[in-house]
Design a protein around this nucleic acid. Structure first.
Lengths: 119, 119
DNA sequence: TGCATATTCAACCAGATGGTTGACGATCTG
DNA sequence: CAGATCGTCAACCATCTGGTTGAATATGCA
């Protein structure tokens, strides 16, 4: 029996992993090659490659191969869909964008990798 | 080594399951007892009880026992945190609340259960 | 050609997840 | 008390997940 996981399933389960959220935060700054994405993390390149595959399946990123380098690019549409879904429950208060920065920084330092935001 | 799954891990992974999202949508209308939450779904009460446990761990709901009935109540704080995180990526466009309703209805009909929104 | 770099693939593993069933404790009601 | 209802627990199962390693593929470069 097929699993039928829709786009929200894919988006939320992709977002459920701190490594993948850190990758998205890195890609928010700039497009990156797979090897460069992997660099700050204490895990194998193959593991990062899988994470990027999950993000791509969820359409949170796209990957384009130029030469032997595969470039990873943030694709915010799926995030926007998920965000819209959540707004129905979070509509009680306006969104605090300052809190976002604190979240990102806290998360990145928490994961223990060096992928800190520049500022 | 401890797993250290932070609140965003818990929130997003709880949201990754369509049954749990449907439950949240039901609770958006009103507080409900566990048995009543389970009623529209084609799965055992124990399974729904586990789903509610996951939602409670993620602090997306709270559960309060009165008599033999355990009441489940939506608790939007964790959703708001996750929403704030996502807004950083979805900041390109304002949130479309009309799209939310379409999403909820599409999702509920998609899961094949009878938990349709009334209005 | 031949070697280095970039990335994925395949096999494997431990642990989490989502479901089942049956037994159980707790609470209301007659 | 006896019986029904509410909900969880425990054991079990199949599948998914997130990681590993080593081999394979593809591209660039001298």
């Amino acid at each position: 029996m097929p699993v039928m996981s829709d786009s929200l399933d894919l988006a939320f389960s992709a977002l459920a992993d701190p490594t993948r959220r850190a990758i998205l935060a890195m890609l928010l700054e700039d497009d990156m090659a797979v090897t460069d994405v992997a660099e700050p993390f204490a895990m194998s390149l193959a593991a990062i490659s899988k994470h990027l595959g999950v993000l791509a399946d969820a359409r949170l990123i796209t990957q384009e191969k130029r030469g032997r380098v595969k470039w990873c690019k943030l694709e915010p549409d799926a995030l926007r869909s998920a965000s819209v879904w959540m707004q129905g429950f979070g509509q009680f208060e306006p969104v605090d964008l300052d809190a976002l920065e604190r979240f990102l920084e806290a998360e990145l330092s928490e994961t223990g990798n060096a992928a800190a935001l520049d500022g």
